[in-house]
Design a protein around this nucleic acid. Structure first.
Lengths: 236, 236
DNA sequence: ATATGTGAAACCCTTCACAGCT
DNA sequence: AGCTGTGAAGGGTTTCACATAT
């Protein structure tokens, strides 16, 4: 299949074809009227725009279950990410190969980052260690951090943080599940309405989990754009 | 701190106070004019609305590194989720305690789901097993699935699927990282513009990773709402 | 005096529809 | 004839600003 139309791509992706064309148009005019998009060329252009053609060395700090799972995750390598180093604070872990890469000791963190030109770090440590690790990463020159630890990280201006909270995904499912349950009844509905489930616009269910932090020295304030945060006011 | 104002909460959450008030208003009128919101009452109301006050038994299938990491993840229990069972297809895993819960064999999946009234399942299997596990979960009565396997799942109408692709988060960071790099130069900018980085509206960077699937028997088509999908057209 | 709750305005994103190119 | 690229319309969400309540 040498070429593809916006209609076909849109159907495959589950979006409107006009939106797809408009989105593509922000990258440039890579289509041919009357024909469609040259698949190979389009793939290359999108890859380049997304940074997939670059080599991104990353370091991962905290090689517990989650860290090991991430290191073994296939999706990374195929998208231009190269695990430059696995780092842990447990001397017993050091030297152990995880996903074929020997774990290094945290004392060497700065050296590793510098030598490999790493600008992206992944934190999969326990909550208590995360901020400290984060500070060291930033001081060593890392400017993007993916945080799996259940803590909000403070970073200086110019550093991007993405927080992945795995339980929020479950929470969103539970929220929908609750609504499904509420809609069943029909007759019993009114009775069960002691704690009524009011009509909530789509917004009430935020698009997704990770809270983009970036920017400010403290947390979030002022961050604009379609970030889809879960309300920050979240009872434990 | 017995009460809190929308202004304070908004600052803490990094959003506009009017938006916060409007959002809260969809849940009801839980504030007091001239005073603010009673913290305890507000927390309770939000918890109830989000389903945090309910008990949500879940099953997790596929207890590899990721499954074990999830089972150990602290955030679940504190939000009303109870791991009813860990299930794996590897007989060698069966009986082994992970996060204090013994792993059960996959043959008992249906029985486990029924006995525990489970409606939410988590799939952390390899890609190859995911669809099959998904089908069994659905057949057994599960109506919400959190999918960590790198596959798109097909589910019947009425079943919600959330897919978490951990590498997409990294990709978003890399995308920003690329832009940061592009903005440095200043003078060298024009020269390096052989492959210019065009102005892309905020939309170009989707809010977040997980692709809400739900609904249709096949994938996505027609799904509306602020889902923040990554473009589905994604080169390997 | 102070802070909520909410119409109305502003803004942004999505979709329509068609001119323009192959 | 067919499909892209895009101005304009439409729809939805965010912010403003103030009437209303304590």
């Amino acid at each position: 299949m040498p070429t593809v139309s916006s209609e076909e791509l849109a159907a495959a992706a589950g979006v409107n074809s006009a939106k797809l064309r408009k989105d593509f148009s922000y990258l440039g005019s890579y289509g041919t009227r009357g024909v469609g998009y040259d698949v190979e060329y389009l793939v290359y252009q999108i890859s380049r725009e997304l940074g997939l053609t670059q080599d991104w060395p990353i370091v991962m700090v905290g090689i517990g279950n989650l860290g090991a799972a991430l290191a073994n995750y296939g999706g990374f390598a195929s998208r231009g990410f190269r695990v430059a180093a696995l780092i842990d604070a447990d001397p017993a872990m050091v030297g152990k190969p995880v996903a074929g890469i020997p774990v290094q000791y945290i004392d060497d963190l700065e050296k590793i980052i510098e030598e490999n030109g790493v600008s992206i770090g992944v934190i999969a440590t326990p909550a208590g260690a995360a901020q400290q690790v984060c500070d060291r990463l930033v001081a060593a020159g890392v400017t993007s951090i993916l945080n799996f630890a259940p803590t909000v990280l403070s970073v200086p201006d110019g550093v991007d943080v993405r927080k992945v909270d795995l339980s929020i995904e479950l929470q969103i499912l539970a929220f929908h599940e609750q609504r499904k349950a509420g809609e069943e009844g029909g007759v019993a509905e009114a009775a069960a309405a002691a704690a009524p489930v009011p009509a909530v616009p789509a917004t009430a269910v935020p698009p997704a989990a990770p809270v983009r932090t970036g920017g400010g020295s403290e947390q979030a304030p002022g961050r604009k754009g379609p970030d889809g945060d879960m309300p920050a006011v979240m009872p434990a």
